[in-house]
Write a protein that binds this DNA or RNA. Structure first.
Length: 573
DNA sequence: GCCGTTTTCGGCCCGACTGTTTTCAGTCG
């Protein structure tokens, strides 16, 4: 199996971090990190690009030297420069960098002066009081290190954005109504709709000082205050989530919101553009020779650089600034574009609510249609439907459609893809449905080749419409199964099949990176909630966000189409 | 090591907070 982009990127990140510890030119170090970031988020397989002899220097941040290194990695699986560095500087130093408060300079000091190579070495030295004697260190740093070593063992995890959402709401509710508070907004990766967040960045503007900062530090969920100043404080909550609050003057709100929304890569690209235009951007505004040009709104910050406003979901440093300069930013899909949901469950299998309740909830969301996709018989734990029970549900749906006003239920099924690539129900019943959603629910461990062929074979069935949660991953719980997604997308496009963007917050499958790939390949997609209750239909926004992160507009998403057009699309052959 | 409206050399984002310092380096986001 060829190396994945993310494995290649890891090698460059390792090389960069080790060279940083060695004191290498920081710009060279940054170049490797930049390349790693480009590689990790690139929608096409670099291994395949090398095999096809494509020019890698076309990629941003990849020049002659790094392109050559990538070729070597792809052909040999090794990066000789990294192996050279590892002879001098042990790989275990990278663990030390993960400790908060330890960066390359301090790790270098620890290694050269105390021969500290591992976390165990570090702990021993800290306990015996040798750290505080080092130049640039002191008793406080030593204590900090011991504290962080303990927490490090607990393993820091990233929170689902969905989990962080309720935390953010609670904190905002706590701060709202505070004297002097003007505006307040969550920025950071939360605002960019990343699937997980490492912390929450909250931004506030205040009139005449205000008491917001004090009120924030007094929030009942705070476990520990990590740092505090007049404009910026950090706390760790009892649930482990870190929250930062920044306070800026009202006239700087836009500049600060832009700045604290990031991403880091986006901001670097934006500031580089500003420097070229003789401007300086910071969180207080855009300046030319000390004169303030913009800052109150994000729109004017971008406009002062000759750019249209860029949606937060696009701000990942994937060429969005170049696209904005050339006026070719996509018109992103919006929640309101969706006319229906194509994946949900009822109490016939493992859902909580009855058909009618699901229909009413969909209608309340303004949908035109809702596909009922209960499980098929192989999924016995969910009491999956056999042909007879499915036929009965189809009759119920027909009867309900007679009665319902303003919403049409579609007869459908979430049918299991069996190990040999056949579907769990016979064609004679599938053909009577409006659509099928097809899923892999077992045999996750097959080789990439076998898993890919299993799915492609399933797509050969003329009644295969939508591939549900295509990679099977569960965030923080289960890895994606091995699969050649590029081949699957191409196969789906050729056969007129559709891939799902599953909006369940712990799935988000496809995710933003996959959506970029889908955009490039041109395969049709559906955004579906996979709701197991009427309330669950509300999670559509999470799927839409991933589509937006993948630069998608509504024309590639089938459930933005009116019913008649959708049904036509679903008829294959 | 990358890159080019400063174009093949000489730049490379910018500020807050902390701790160790007496004016600043390191880290972080």
């Amino acid at each position: 199996m060829a190396l994945s982009n993310s494995e290649i990127a890891d090698l460059f990140d390792q090389l960069a971090e080790l060279l940083d510890i060695e004191g290498e030119n920081p710009f060279r170090v940054r170049a490797y990190h930049n390349a790693a970031r480009t590689i990790r988020s690139y929608p096409k397989s670099l291994a395949e690009m090398v095999a096809a002899d494509e020019d890698l220097t076309e990629l941003p941040g990849i020049g002659e030297a790094i392109a050559k290194k990538i070729e070597t990695i792809v052909r040999t699986g090794r990066l000789p420069q990294l192996e050279q560095v590892l002879k001098r500087t042990p790989k275990s130093l990278l663990e030390l960098l993960r400790i908060e408060g330890l960066g390359p300079k301090r790790v270098k000091t620890l290694f050269y002066l105390l021969k500290i190579k591992t976390l165990e070495d570090l702990e021993r030295a800290a306990r015996s009081g040798r750290i505080r004697e080092l130049p640039g260190f002191g008793p406080k740093t030593e204590e900090l290190i011991l504290n962080h070593l303990q927490k490090h063992a607990l393993q820091e995890k990233r929170f689902l954005r969905f989990e962080a959402e309720s935390v953010a709401e609670a904190i905002l509710a706590h701060l709202k109504g505070c004297p002097g508070l003007d505006r307040i907004e969550v920025a950071g990766s939360f605002r960019r709709w990343k699937e997980t967040v490492g912390d929450l960045d909250i931004l506030a503007t205040v009139r005449d000082g205000g008491e917001v900062m004090a009120r924030f530090l007094a929030y009942e969920g705070v476990e520990e205050v990590l740092s505090h100043g007049p404009t910026r404080s950090s706390v760790r909550l009892k649930n482990g989530l870190q929250v930062d609050l920044r306070v800026v003057p009202t006239e700087s709100f836009g500049a600060a919101l832009q700045y604290f929304t990031g991403s880091k890569a986006h901001n670097i690209a934006l500031r580089t553009l500003a420097v070229k235009q003789g401007l300086k951007i910071n969180e207080y505004g855009v300046f030319r020779a000390g004169e303030r040009l913009a800052g109150a709104t994000e729109e004017e910050v971008y406009a002062s650089l000759g750019l249209p406003w860029i949606a937060p979901e696009l701000r990942e440093g994937r060429g969005e600034i170049e696209a904005a300069l050339e006026n070719r930013l996509p018109k992103l899909i919006e929640l309101a574009d969706l006319r229906g949901d194509l994946h949900c469950h009822t109490d016939a299998t493992d859902g909580q609510d009855a058909l009618e309740a699901m229909a009413e909830a969909a209608k309340a969301l303004g949908y035109e249609y809702l596909a009922i996709t209960d499980h098929s018989k192989r999924l016995t734990v969910a009491r999956g439907l056999d042909e007879q029970r499915l036929r009965r549900q189809m009759e119920q749906i027909d009867a309900l459609n007679e009665k319902l006003q303003g919403i049409r239920l579609l007869k459908a099924i979430e049918v299991d893809i069996l190990e040999d690539g056949s579907l769990d129900l016979p064609e004679r019943v599938l053909k009577d449905l409006d659509l099928t959603v097809c899923s892999v629910h077992y045999q996750f461990h097959l080789s990439a080749k076998k898993q890919t062929e299993r799915i492609l074979r399933a797509m050969d069935n003329p009644y295969f419409n939508i591939l549900a949660h295509p990679t099977g991953r569960l965030i923080n719980q289960r890895q994606a199964y091995e699969i050649d997604l590029e081949r699957i997308m191409q196969g789906a496009r050729e056969r007129g099949c559709i891939l799902e963007i599953n909006a369940q917050p712990e799935r988000l499958d496809l995710n933003g990176e996959h959506c970029l790939m889908a955009r490039e390949i041109g395969v049709k997609l559906a955004i579906s909630t996979d709701a197991h209750s009427a309330l669950g239909l509300n999670l559509m926004r999470y799927g839409v966000a991933q589509a937006r992160r993948g630069w998608l507009s509504k024309d590639q998403i089938v459930n933005t189409r009116p019913l008649r057009e959708l049904l036509r699309l679903l008829k294959r052959a």
